[in-house]
């Protein structure tokens, strides 16, 4: 029964995720849920890494400083707040310091050839668990109405995201590589975008049904 419930749940999600997409996905079941969860674990390694998560913050609009070069985790210094614009229009534009290129100096400001900014509030990952982030990423209502392919494609063309793997200076890059991360997203998607708590939910469903 547990297995069945899981299957149903995932099938439904799969349908949602790939609806309307003309893509050649591998045969159902050719990428196992276990494999998908492994891919998710790697995806989580990336999205929870300081290079990403420091700017995926909540509606208080405070970017964070965390990770090996900062010691203890804290809000971005200098009372920086990106405002509801998420790019600092209200006070100090992020681009005031985060220019088109990354400073190689220790603790200098990183930058890219795009407006430095916070991710949307819906994608607030800072301090969130693997499952919470997973649920958000596969929920079109909270991921900018994106399929997992869209998510992967987004990674390919948004240079601010590429920076995470080429952060410059002595900053620790996000783990793996951009390509590997995109592959993991596809693999996760083809496995039916499983999330760590799915089995627990299925179990809960199971028990409730009984």
């Amino acid at each position: 029964m547990k297995t069945l419930m899981k299957y149903v749940l995932l099938t439904q999600l799969c349908t949602v995720a790939v609806a309307g997409q003309a893509l050649k996905k591998p045969d159902d079941g050719s990428i196992s849920i276990e494999q998908g969860l492994k891919s998710w674990a790697k995806i989580y390694d990336v999205v929870s890494h300081p290079r990403c998560v420091n700017c995926h913050v909540g509606s208080d609009n405070y970017p964070m400083w965390s990770g090996p070069s900062y010691g203890k985790t804290r809000r971005h210094g200098m009372n920086i707040n990106a405002g509801n614009s998420r790019m600092g229009v209200e006070s100090v534009m992020c681009s005031t310091c985060h220019t088109a290129t990354t400073s190689e100096a220790a603790h200098g400001a990183p930058g890219v050839k795009a407006s430095w900014r916070l991710a949307p509030v819906a994608a607030a990952w800072f301090g969130k668990s693997s499952d919470e982030i997973c649920q958000q990423l596969r929920d079109p209502n909270r991921n900018g109405n994106r399929s997992f392919e869209d998510v992967a494609a987004h990674l390919n063309h948004d240079v601010i995201l590429h920076w995470a793997w080429q952060p410059g200076g002595k900053r620790e890059p996000a783990p793996y590589s951009l390509d590997e991360h995109v592959n993991d997203i596809m693999s996760w998607g083809w496995a039916g975008v499983p999330c760590p708590s799915d089995s627990d939910e299925a179990l809960t469903e199971d028990i409730t049904n009984e």
């Binding site: 681009s95 005031t96 310091c97 220019t99 088109a100 290129t101 400073s103 200098g108 400001a109």
Partner: peptide, 10 residues
């Protein structure tokens, strides 16, 4: 017209 730190701008 917008503030920028000249030490960070190439």
């Amino acid at each position: 017209g917008l503030a920028v730190r000249a030490c960070q701008l190439r």
